[in-house]
């Protein structure tokens, strides 16, 4: 933002006066040690936990991806890159990568626009804002599994009495099996509406927080200069929301690549698995490989391919949008 207050090149505030400064320097070592002790005490358990349960596990998983591990997670039977080779030569896995890319390219802009639009609308309202905000946020608290069952059994089941089919019948449509129709692929309607319902409210709240952080006087100054309506939005609101937008975008990318719950729960019967599902995300594929088939080596290899993909996309996105760069 603006650079109104003078700062020194190093960014340090100018020293208030010599004597006070000296006293502070004398006190610093002890204070530092105490601060460090407190830091270690508070952050230590978390860091140890993170190390053991995340980084050791990630490292182990990487070693597993280089070994043949069926029905065991013991290391030792090294096979080099054979797992990666098997995985990338499997058409089903390549298809799943392609499908998740297309899904991401579609769902991220739609969720972004939806949540931003909703935030702008809710932000403008003078009365009942809290009620509306809560109403839109509540779906974010619903689990994907519960929502999947709701969507699958009540809204979009294949019976004439299903809610979507009932509404369709008012317009003379005959009953359609929404989740099983592949020509045209109606299941995308089910998947996309569900994800929007669950996610838009959450990102809306992030945008609202961003909107509330924009100082009023900026708008007033712009209004004095004669800016109104769309121009205010384009020239003031959106630029001031840039940091929020970039963070939201990144979260949405990651969430989209990790899509699992609704794809698994909508298409699985709990018995015959998801082998016949018209669309499989990489995570569903890997879940079946590791949990269904006990091939933990192949499953780990897939996890790393997917991680590489997510890291790659996030880096590219960071490059384009300038995430992590200083504001201003």
């Amino acid at each position: 933002m603006s650079t109104a207050s003078p700062t020194r090149p190093g960014g340090l505030p100018s020293p208030p006066g010599r004597p006070a400064n000296k006293a502070a320097e004398a006190r610093r070592p002890r204070a530092d040690r105490r601060a460090w002790g407190a830091f270690a005490l508070l952050a230590g358990p978390m860091l140890i936990g993170l190390g053991v349960f995340k980084y050791v596990a990630i490292g182990w998983s990487f070693l597993l991806s280089l070994s043949e591990a069926r029905g065991t997670i013991a290391l030792g039977h090294w096979v080099g890159l054979a797992n990666y080779q098997t995985l990338l030569s499997a058409a089903a896995f390549r298809d799943s990568l392609l499908q998740i890319l297309l899904f991401t390219l579609f769902i991220v802009p739609v969720t972004f626009a939806g949540s931003l639009g909703l935030a702008l609308l809710v932000h403008r309202i003078r009365r009942g804002r809290a009620v509306l905000r809560t109403a839109f946020l509540i779906p974010a608290a619903v689990s994907y599994v519960a929502a999947s069952l709701l969507w699958k059994m009540c809204l979009f089941n294949g019976l004439p009495s299903g809610i979507a089919n009932m509404i369709g019948s008012w317009f003379g449509m005959s009953a359609v099996p929404w989740i099983q129709s592949t020509h045209p692929p109606l299941y995308w309607i089910v998947l996309v509406t569900m994800r929007l319902w669950l996610q838009v409210g959450f990102y809306m709240v992030l945008f609202l927080a961003g909107l509330q952080g924009i100082p009023r006087d900026v708008y007033e100054a712009a209004a004095l200069d004669g800016a109104t309506g769309l121009r205010l939005l384009r020239r003031i609101t959106l630029p001031m929301l840039r940091n929020t937008s970039v963070a939201v975008l990144m979260l949405q990318f990651i969430a989209a690549f990790q899509a699992f719950d609704e794809f698994y729960n909508l298409f699985s019967s709990g018995l015959s698995g998801t082998g016949t599902a018209p669309v499989q995300t990489p995570l569903v594929y890997l879940y079946n490989t590791a949990m269904g088939d006990q091939d933990y080596g192949l499953g780990s290899a897939g996890a790393f391919v997917l991680t590489a993909l997510i890291v790659g996309v996030t880096l590219i996105q960071g490059r384009i949008t300038g995430f992590g760069r200083n504001e201003g």
Partner: peptide, 19 residues
């Protein structure tokens, strides 16, 4: 007939019945 084998087969069948 484990998960990997049945999945390959069922997956193919699912594509066959849709053309």
């Amino acid at each position: 007939w484990d998960t990997a084998v049945s999945t390959a087969f069922n997956n193919a069948a699912a594509k066959i019945v849709t053309g």
